[in-house]
C-alpha cells in the first residue's frame, strides 16, 4: 500500500520524532526496572556475600561462592517443602481440571436450560464469600485441618475465572453442527466430550492447567491458615521461615544475635539462593509457556 506509506512519511512531524525518542527511553527504563532485581538475585546468589553486602556486586558476580546453595541443599526443610508442594500442585491441578473442564463444557451448551442460572451461581462467588473465619470453621468441621486434602479442596478448587475462560473457548471453537452430527450417530454427551471436545481443546487445557499449577506452587495462604504440622507444610511456608522469619539455618543460628554482621551476610546469600531454588520450576518453564499464559487472558477477554 504505497499511498499509506507515503502519507506516513509526509506526516512525520518534529513532535512525533520527540515522541518516538521518549517512547524508546521509557521502554528501556521499564525493561531495566523489571529485569534488574531478577538479574541481581541470580548474581548475588553466586557471589561472595561480603562483596554483596557492601554493594560491590552490581552488574557482574564477584568472588564466586556457592555457600548459599550448599546450605540449601543440606537443609531438609527445603526438601520436605519441595516434595509436599510438588504433590499438592500435581494432584491438586488434576482435581481442578477434572471439575472445571466438564463444568465448562456444560455451561457452553446453549440448549442447557439451567445455564444462565448456574453461571450466576458460580460468578456470585467471585464477589461474595463467607470470609476467613466461617471458611476455617467449615474446614475444622469437615476435619480437613492439618491434612493434605485442604490444599486440594478449598474455595478455589473451581476457579471461576478459569471456568469462564474454558467455557468461552468451547463456545468459540466447538462448532454447533459438530454435536448435531455426532448425536445423529447416537453419540452421548460423555462420549462427545471425551473423544471430540477434549482433543480439540488442548490449548485451553494447557492454559488453565498452568494457571492452576502456578497457583498451587505459589500458595502460601492455605499452609498458613489450615496447617500446623510442619511435615505437611508447603514450600512457601518454609520459604517464609527462611526469608522473612530469619530462621535461615536449620540449627537456628543466623538470626543476627551474637553472630552479628557475619552471620547476617551469609544468611542473605542463603536467601538469594533459596529464592532461585524455589522459583526455578516456574522460571525454567516460563519462556516456553508464556504464550499459553497470554492466550488465557486473551480468550477470557473476548466476552468481557
Amino acid at each position: 500500500m504505497p499511498s499509506i506509506t507515503m502519507n506516513r512519511i509526509r506526516n512525520k512531524k518534529p513532535t512525533d520524532l520527540l515522541f518516538d525518542v521518549t517512547i524508546v527511553a521509557i521502554c528501556i527504563l521499564m525493561f531495566f526496572i523489571v529485569a534488574y532485581p531478577l538479574y541481581f538475585i541470580v548474581i548475588a546468589s553466586i557471589s561472595d556475600p561480603t562483596y554483596v553486602s557492601t554493594g560491590k556486586v552490581l552488574f557482574l558476580p564477584k568472588g564466586f561462592s556457592l555457600f548459599g546453595y550448599e546450605q540449601i541443599f543440606g537443609d531438609s526443610r527445603v526438601w520436605i517443602g519441595y516434595r509436599n508442594t510438588l504433590f499438592y500442585a500435581l494432584f491438586g491441578t488434576l482435581i481442578n481440571l477434572l471439575l472445571t473442564l466438564p463444568a465448562a463444557y456444560v455451561l457452553s451448551r446453549h440448549e442447557f436450560k439451567a445455564r444462565r442460572f448456574l453461571m450466576f451461581f458460580f460468578i456470585f462467588t467471585m464477589f461474595f464469600n463467607g470470609g476467613l473465619i466461617p471458611t476455617y470453621m467449615l474446614m475444622r468441621d469437615l476435619s480437613l485441618l492439618d491434612t493434605p486434602w485442604v490444599f486440594i479442596f478449598n474455595p478455589l478448587t473451581v476457579n471461576v475465572f478459569n471456568l469462564i475462560i474454558t467455557r468461552t473457548f468451547f463456545e468459540n471453537n466447538i462448532p454447533h453442527e459438530m454435536f448435531e452430527a455426532a448425536t445423529m450417530d447416537g453419540c452421548s454427551h460423555f462420549k462427545f466430550f471425551s473423544t471430540i471436545v477434549l482433543p480439540l481443546s488442548k490449548a485451553v487445557t494447557a492454559v488453565i492447567g498452568l494457571y492452576y499449577l502456578v497457583w498451587h506452587w505459589n500458595d502460601f495462604f492455605t499452609g498458613l491458615i489450615y496447617i500446623r504440622d510442619y511435615n505437611l507444610q508447603p514450600l512457601q511456608i518454609v520459604l517464609r521461615d527462611i526469608l522473612l522469619s530469619n530462621q535461615v539455618f536449620a540449627e537456628g543460628a543466623g538470626s543476627g544475635g551474637t553472630g552479628g554482621g557475619y552471620a547476617q551476610r551469609y544468611a542473605d546469600q542463603v536467601k538469594y539462593g533459596v529464592i532461585i531454588v524455589s522459583s526455578l520450576p516456574v522460571l525454567v518453564l516460563y519462556p516456553f509457556i508464556q504464550k499459553y499464559f497470554e492466550k488465557g487472558v486473551l480468550i477470557g477477554s473476548v466476552k468481557g
Binding site: V106, E111, F112, T125, G130, P134, T135, P155, T157, H189
Partner: peptide, 30 residues
C-alpha cells in the same frame, strides 16, 4: 435429555456449595 450434562456439572456444583456457599451460611457465627 440433559441428565448427562447435569452429571458432568454436578461435581463442580457440589464443590462450590460446600466450600463457597456453606461458609456464606456460616456468616451467622458473627
Amino acid at each position: 435429555r440433559d441428565y448427562q450434562l447435569w452429571l458432568m456439572i454436578l461435581p463442580a456444583i457440589i464443590c462450590v456449595i460446600i466450600f463457597n456457599y456453606i461458609p456464606m451460611y456460616g456468616i451467622q457465627l458473627a
